[in-house]
Amino acid sequence: MSRIGKKPVAITNGVTAQIENGQLTVKGPKGTLTMGLSDHVEYSVDGDAITVKPANATKVARSHWGMQRTLVANLVEGVSNGFTKILDIKGVGYRASAQGKTIKLQLGYSHDVDLTVPEGLEVKTPDQTTIEITGIDKQKVGQFAAEIREWRKPEPYKGKGVAYRGEYIFRKEGKKK
């Protein structure tokens, strides 16, 4: 039994949810998100909550149950509050700057890395070593943060690279003489 799946997703003030044509549409102050519904799970909107239940007692239906409930909760959270990922850049000469719909990264390569910001996301650089990615879709925010991090992952000896804020980087001891 899914412990997460049993809990109904609370719909906060200013958020509405509708189920039509196999799609769940959630509208809120920050925007609108839609999600395709799984055939293995039953969804129902009951006033101020969305409940998710397995359609039958099969193992596949039970395995989809908790994940689908979490996806629904992410939709509601996204349209009401939004999501933010913060990346920290460490290293001499490593820096970032957001310029409109592109972000320019200088990560020790012979060239600058220019990335186009996906639709629906907003990228800010409060200083040269911090990148803030905000949006209403949790998957898009996390995916774009991972794509930026992929250019220069933190290395274990000096910790240089692009890391998530609060991420622990396992440090190794250097070579001894």
Rank of each mutant, 00 (worst) to 15 (best):
M1A: 13
S2R: 01
R3T: 03
K6R: 11
K6Q: 10
P8L: 13
V9Y: 06
V9Q: 06
T12S: 12
T12W: 05
T12N: 04
N13M: 03
N13D: 13
N13E: 12
Q18P: 00
Q18A: 11
Q18Y: 03
G22V: 02
G22L: 04
Q23C: 02
Q23H: 09
T25C: 05
V26E: 07
V26P: 00
G28Y: 08
K30D: 05
T32H: 07
T34L: 08
T34D: 03
G36W: 13
G36H: 13
S38C: 08
Y43A: 07
Y43L: 10
S44E: 06
V45G: 01
G47E: 06
G47V: 05
D48R: 15
D48L: 11
A49V: 13
A49Y: 11
V52N: 00
P54M: 07
A57E: 12
K59S: 14
V60T: 14
V60N: 12
A61G: 08
A61R: 00
A61M: 01
S63C: 01
W65V: 06
W65E: 06
G66A: 15
R69H: 09
T70I: 08
T70D: 13
L71R: 15
L71M: 14
V72L: 05
L75H: 08
V76R: 13
E77G: 10
E77L: 11
S80G: 02
N81E: 12
N81F: 15
G82S: 04
G82T: 03
D88T: 01
I89W: 13
G91D: 07
R95S: 11
A98Q: 15
Q99G: 01
K101W: 02
T102F: 08
T102L: 12
L105V: 07
G108R: 04
Y109F: 14
H111D: 13
H111C: 05
V113N: 11
D114K: 15
L115C: 00
T116L: 15
P118Y: 11
L121T: 08
V123I: 14
K124Q: 14
T125L: 12
P126T: 03
P126G: 02
D127I: 06
D127V: 05
Q128K: 12
T130D: 07
I131V: 15
I133V: 09
I133D: 01
I133S: 00
T134H: 10
G135V: 04
I136Y: 10
I136R: 09
V141R: 13
V141L: 12
V141H: 10
G142C: 07
F144G: 00
A145D: 03
E147K: 15
E147T: 10
I148K: 10
R149H: 05
E150T: 02
W151R: 14
P156F: 12
G159I: 14
G161D: 08
V162R: 09
Y164R: 04
G166I: 05
E167P: 01
I169S: 01
F170I: 11
R171L: 14
R171I: 08
G174N: 03
G174V: 04
K177C: 00
